[in-house]
């Protein structure tokens, strides 16, 4: 295990300069969550256009893994259909669980694949998808 695998440049880049950070004007759905043990916090806001995630923004604070994951995952799902979004989230969860996953579908999110070697940190990486799950349930 090497630290360079975990803290890849792209992760540090997204941690220090997160994409899609902030609030939406009129979100159709929003949700938040935290890891009580470590204090990581993520809140997501979504706007839909028909079946599509038209826009998504997050706010939060916490470690590099939780915050870069939020940045990367919002990038990955923006403009995708809800169906595709769920597929990406499923593959991402597979990756963190050490199962087979569709690397092509995940794109940059694959940067977080080494988190699975650090069991204590998997919760940090999965916080965003847990929050997204709740938000997607609000879609009528």
């Amino acid at each position: 295990m090497s630290l360079e695998e975990l803290f890849k440049e792209i992760i540090i880049e997204h941690y220090q300069h997160p994409k899609n950070q902030g609030h939406l004007e009129h979100p159709d759905a929003k949700s938040d969550g935290s890891n009580p043990l470590c204090g990581d916090e993520i809140a997501m806001e979504l706007r839909f256009d028909g079946d599509r995630v038209k826009d998504v923004m997050f706010t939060g604070n916490g470690c590099s893994i939780s915050q870069s994951a939020a940045s990367l995952i919002t990038e990955a799902i923006k403009g995708k259909t809800v169906e595709e979004t769920k597929k990406i989230m499923g593959e991402y969860r597979n990756m963190l669980a050490g199962k087979e996953y569709d690397a092509e579908l995940l794109g940059d999110l694959e940067a977080l694949s080494d988190v699975k070697k650090y069991p204590a940190r998997v919760k940090c990486a999965s916080l965003s998808v847990a929050v997204l799950d709740q938000a997607l349930q609000q879609k009528k």
């Binding site: 630290l3 975990l6 470590c38 990581d40 470690c63 590099s64 650090y118 940190r121």
Partner: peptide, 10 residues
């Protein structure tokens, strides 16, 4: 610039 969890892991 370095969250305490990241410090812990390093």
């Amino acid at each position: 610039g370095v969250h305490s969890h990241d410090i812990g892991t390093i």
